[in-house]
């Protein structure tokens, strides 16, 4: 273990020299990692925010169950009990007919045109029914409609479902795309290391002759891959830290409406930077490991 730690400066020196000696291929590998990580960063920003939006939307999905006009005030507690008994319902709140009209009047878009209905309110009373998860809302609506005394039940319905499905698709296809890009970057790094191994074949032959262990021969190449990964992650990390903060401030913390609240930059950008660095290192390490295992095999 001590020997491994002691050999780190040697390996760093060797890896650095190798990167400089083969600058063209090294820079192209770094560039590939940079592009991959920028795309990963963009997808991650989208995915984490969409996930946050989805949770936000899901927690605010309510079914509005409107009560039949024939239902007496005294029957309300019984209706409320029936609603509460439905599976996945976490909360039920009663809103009287006058409260419903007040809400309509207070809505900015109505611009006072419903004020005249105050004396003869045509609106029914309603219940706000909260679901535990967005996916259960449709079923809850069906159950509500079976209850006598309920006129109709509504929620954002299909539009909300479509939005959630859309967000999930972005997450899935984005993930697949990122995976493919990571493989491409690994392949490029693997190729760079392969060229470096080829360039240093005489050196490697002498190392074998004088009794260098296979691990000792392989280590600088693995360090080189890790370096390429680290260098490749610098620009994406800077873009994350400064770019996300800038966009967040420019949009005032919301995307289009206050329903889509963006994740606050701190600690989000720090976590994301850490993730990008780890992915960069892993891509570099795995890429070089593939090249080393294939091209530094030693048999007798």
């Amino acid at each position: 273990m001590i020997r491994v730690i002691k050999s780190i400066p040697y390996n760093i020196k060797k890896a650095w020299k190798s990167i400089i000696r083969n600058l063209g291929a090294s820079v192209s590998s770094v560039f590939a990692v940079t592009i991959t990580l920028i795309l990963i960063m963009l997808f991650a920003v989208a995915a984490f925010n969409v996930s946050s939006f989805t949770k936000n939307i899901e927690t605010h999905i309510q079914v509005l169950a409107r009560v039949d006009a024939i239902v007496e005030e005294s029957q309300i507690p019984e209706l409320e009990a029936q609603l509460k008994a439905i599976d996945h319902v976490v909360d039920v709140r009663y809103s009287s007919a006058s409260e419903q009209l007040d809400l309509l009047i207070q809505d900015e878009k109505s611009k006072g045109k419903y004020n005249s209905f105050k004396n003869s309110n045509p609106l029914p009373a309603a219940f706000y029914v909260d679901a535990d998860q967005g996916k259960n809302v449709a079923n809850i609506k069906k159950q509500i409609l079976k209850i006598d005394g309920i006129m109709d039940a509504n929620y954002g319905g299909d539009s909300v479902n479509t939005m959630i499905k859309g967000f999930n698709s972005i997450r899935l296809y984005g993930g697949v795309f990122i995976g493919a890009l990571s493989f491409l970057a690994m392949f490029l790094i693997s190729n760079t290391i392969k060229i470096n191994i080829h360039n240093r074949r005489e050196e490697i032959a002498i190392m074998r002759n004088v009794g260098a262990s296979n691990g000792f021969i392989k280590a600088p190449f693995l360090f080189e891959g890790i370096f390429i990964g680290i260098f490749g992650s610098i620009i994406p990390i800077l873009l994350t830290i400064f770019g996300y903060g800038f966009v967040y401030d420019a949009l005032g913390g919301n995307l289009l409406t206050s329903m889509f609240k963006l994740l606050p930059p701190i600690p989000f950008v720090l976590y994301l930077s850490g993730i990008l660095l780890v992915i960069g290192i892993l891509v570099g390490f795995i890429g070089s490991l593939l090249a080393v295992n294939k091209n530094l095999k030693w048999k007798r």
Partner: peptide, 10 residues
């Protein structure tokens, strides 16, 4: 020196 570096001498 390379021969000695290769076997991890200080």
């Amino acid at each position: 020196a390379f021969a000695m570096e290769a076997i991890g001498e200080n």
